[in-house]
């Protein structure tokens, strides 16, 4: 009897909290010792975390970085689960399932990649960028936030043609990797574009020649309205785009069909599970014309 290939692809671990750093507006960066998950995780995947005994249902959180035996997560307190999570201390353990979900597929025929992350949608873009270090010059990252970024923006040493001269703020970690990035916010943060991430995306694409556009693919994670705007940009420039979605989730392994989103296929609309059919979907299937 041949069993499905997916068997034993997700690990349950009691992950020790190595560090748990608070950033403005209740944003937290959580570093966990989770060697099995870390060894297999790929950009776009997430972990399903039990935040504490008081709330036994798990919460899905995207993976931001992996190390030898650890994973980094970024989350913002938005409800009871993340509130409970924020109260957990270094040295305690969190039970997690991971890595879960289909990662971002990388098309070798489109090696020029634009990554767009908004709010707590930034982590999958940072993870994806780290795996693209070898192709740093072909990768551009745009991050947006309406609260202070969970890192200190710095003027970038990397030039990005086509953008306003005043937009120089970048994520230092991405600069260290040789990957250009720029920041956007409506809040008027210094060095950041005062507007939407898609404004910067359009400016960057507008400056691209037809050959470059033919090599380009978009990747995005963030609020629904931002994803819809990214899908519109992709459609306007006839570019493929992959979006990472979220939805309330129960089992996290495909068993309950609780986390579905409507996906539009050539055969018509269908409900797909964010946990194992996604979380990454084609923009054209999430936001059809």
């Amino acid at each position: 009897m041949k069993h499905p290939d997916h068997r034993e692809s997700i690990f349950q671990e009691d992950a020790e909290i190595i560090s748990h750093d608070c950033h403005p507006c209740e944003q937290y960066v959580l570093r966990l010792r989770a060697p099995y998950c870390a060894a297999k995780a790929r950009p776009g995947q997430f972990v399903h975390i039990r935040c504490g005994d008081a709330l036994p249902m798990r919460r899905p959180i995207s993976i931001m970085r992996v190390g030898d035996d650890r994973i980094d997560l970024l989350y913002k307190v938005v409800g009871a689960g993340t509130r409970l999570l924020s109260q957990r201390r270094v040295g305690e353990s969190l039970n997690l399932l991971g890595p879960i979900g289909k990662p971002f597929p990388l098309n070798p025929e489109r090696p020029r990649r634009l990554l767009i992350g908004g709010g707590v949608g930034m982590p999958p873009m940072i993870f994806l960028a780290e795996t693209l270090k070898a192709a740093a010059s072909d990768t551009f990252v745009i991050l947006g936030s309406e609260i202070p970024f969970p890192f200190l923006p710095k003027p970038s040493a990397l030039l990005v043609p086509g953008l306003p001269d005043s937009v120089i703020g970048a994520m230092p970690l991405l600069d260290d990797w040789g990957i250009a990035s720029r920041l956007a916010s409506l809040q008027g943060f210094a060095g950041c574009h005062q507007g939407y991430v898609t404004d910067l995306a359009r400016a960057w694409l507008e400056h691209s020649d037809p050959g470059q556009l033919a090599d380009t693919e978009l990747f995005a994670c963030g609020p629904h309205a931002m994803l819809e705007a990214v899908a519109t940009v992709a459609r306007d420039y006839t570019l493929p785009a992959r979006l990472s979605l979220e939805e309330y989730m129960a089992c996290g392994v495909g068993g309950c069909a609780g986390c579905v989103v409507e996906i539009h296929t050539p055969q018509g609309p269908t409900m797909k599970r964010v946990c194992v059919d996604g979380p990454v979907f084609k923009a054209s299937e999430v936001f059809p014309v």
Binding site: H3, S9, I10
Partner: peptide, 11 residues
């Protein structure tokens, strides 16, 4: 699901 979903989890 239809019987194979949880076998994703090791153990």
């Amino acid at each position: 699901g239809f019987g194979e979903e949880y076998t994703r989890i090791q153990g």
